[in-house]
Design a protein around this nucleic acid. Sequence first.
DNA 1: CCTCCACCGGAACGTGAGGAGT
DNA 2: ACTCCTCACGTTCCGGTGGAGG
Length: 410
Amino acid sequence: MKNGTLSDVFEELLDHSPIFENKDVLRSTYAPEELPHREKQIHNIAGILVAALRGETPSNILIYGKTGTGKTVCVKYVGRELEGFGGGKGNACVVMYLNCEVVDTQYRVLAQLARHFDKDIPMTGWPTDQVYSEFKNAIDSEDRTAIIILDEVDKLVKKGDEILYNLSRINSELKNARVSIIGITNDLKFLEFLDPRVRSSLGEDEIIFPPYDANQLKDILEQRSTTGFRAGVLNSGVISLCSAFAASEHGDARRALDLLRVSGEIAEREGAGNVSEQHVKLAKNKIELDRIGEVIKTLPTQSKLVLYSAILLDKMGAVDFTTGEVYNTYKKLCMSVGIDVLTQRRVTDLISELDMLGIINATVVSKGRYGRTKEISVSVPSESTMSVLLEDYRLKPLEDYASLVQTRLQ
DNA sequence: CCTCCACCGGAACGTGAGGAGT
DNA sequence: ACTCCTCACGTTCCGGTGGAGG
């Protein structure tokens, strides 16, 4: 009987999410039919790529823009349309998308491209030349235009720009097919590191994607929310608030969408019938906390110890404490963990770094007769931060220490 | 008004890892 | 295999300082 009721619950939740109609729409990876405020850029790209439909070689394109400005989604969109259109008109177009953060070497890029034409290329073992000619033959076997999209192309260049050089010259070795390259990057300085020959050929055309402003973000969120959420669950100010938060950062649409989706998730978990501005604030907090947690996890051990000392002091009831106090507890911690003790000079630097990251608050104050120091307070929740810190195996011995403080408090 | 605390923070230097060049 | 260079991380040394208390 119990099982029966439980599966009813699953059934209920599966079929009728009270909040979401289709959550995938609210992910930044989803490609919608319409891309608001990118008409100009899409038009530009299409204008360049249309040459492919006439059987000519389109110019290579370099696309700039910060994260979350819609570069990838726009290029993919134009690519899809082009492929579909070209098939109907008899001028075949092949669009290949590669994310260079994943495929980050010459060999892998070529192998991936060749596999697109159903070639069997082993993960490793072949000489790169052979993979190159395999790809060349495959592509040249028909009269067609191939468009290669290299996303995050700056990642590829870090390991040598030979591949870009080869690809940009491949047209002179082909008889039937034509190749054009679209590079996408968010690193504006990346061109400087490039071989001049590659630079001029890759950057025949350049398109810039500016960040979105709050109103544009609002349009994007509104458009997605109509299919993403059930009708009427969003309170009136929710979308404005999400876009305002995201716009005040970098105009990052990815952030805005995350914020909206997480707000919905929180509302859903609460069992609320609709999403309120309060949920957005909670979501902003959650996202921020996740970010901070990530930062803390990747801190160097010494910084973790310093932070741990600060949290201990905080838990012992001190509201503000000084560099000296932190340093003293830090020294004790180092002893009990068996890690070298750094000098106070160095620790002040670490404290400043933690301050910069927004994990602690440190301001210099003068206490007159009693010297001049930094007043420090912790600005993250101590319990959860402590457990994140204890995940580090080098800090394991401190678990006892933590419970010791706990008992002393009682 | 002067003193003097308890630290701040700049400068120069040491060290070892990792990359480029040859 | 070798040197050379850079870079991050730390140390040593030390001049500097806001303001409570005398």
